[in-house]
Amino acid sequence: MEPTSEQMEAVRLFDQGGALKVNACAGTGKITTPQLLARSTDRRGLYLAFNRSIAEEAKRRFGSNVVCSTVNTTRRRGILVLRLGVRHRGVRVGGS
């Protein structure tokens, strides 16, 4: 599939660095666009989905440099790490 002009603009902006948020309606390429971004770099990324089935589909489509998760799972992990000091994947935030 050939990227749209909007998707190519997103890749161009992403390559300039900094954070990028893609906000789009249903069926407009919200998984395809981040895939293009992930393929354009070795940098790590985070794909947030609103439900588990979308997060699981994204995991199958993205490379290992992108963590795919639901908003709620990410929120719960943040609470565990920040408030309780629980380790997640060997990383401890705010502590030694």
Rank of each mutant, 00 (worst) to 15 (best):
G90S: 05
C25V: 08
Q16N: 08
A38S: 11
N51E: 00
E56M: 08
G94W: 14
Q35R: 15
G18N: 03
R87L: 05
V67C: 06
L82A: 13
R92M: 00
R83E: 13
H88S: 05
S96I: 05
L80W: 13
D15I: 15
G45Q: 07
C68R: 04
L80Q: 15
G45W: 09
D42K: 14
L20Q: 14
N72A: 02
Q7P: 01
T28Y: 07
V22L: 14
N65E: 07
K59M: 00
N51I: 02
I54W: 04
L80G: 15
P3R: 15
T41M: 04
S96V: 03
T4I: 11
R60D: 05
T41Y: 05
A10Y: 14
R60Y: 10
K21R: 12
R12L: 12
G17I: 03
G95F: 06
G17Q: 08
E9A: 14
R87H: 06
M1Y: 15
I79L: 12
I79T: 14
D42Y: 08
R60S: 13
E6Y: 14
S64I: 15
T41H: 07
V81I: 12
V91A: 10
T41Q: 03
R60K: 12
R60H: 11
T41I: 05
R89L: 07
F62E: 10
A10V: 12
R43C: 01
F50V: 01
A26Y: 10
N23T: 07
D15G: 13
H88C: 02
A26L: 10
K30Q: 05
H88T: 01
V22I: 15
T73L: 02
V91S: 09
V93S: 13
R89C: 02
R75K: 03
S40F: 10
M8Y: 04
G95I: 10
H88D: 06
A49F: 03
R87C: 00
L82N: 14
T33D: 09
L20I: 15
V81N: 13
F14R: 13
T28W: 08
A49C: 01
V67P: 02
R60L: 00
E57M: 00
T28R: 04
G27V: 15
Q7D: 03
R44N: 00
Q16I: 01
H88P: 04
R87P: 03
A58C: 03
R43L: 00
M8Q: 14
Y47W: 05
R60E: 12
S40N: 13
C68W: 02
A10M: 05
L48W: 05
C25W: 09
R87A: 00
D42V: 06
F50T: 05
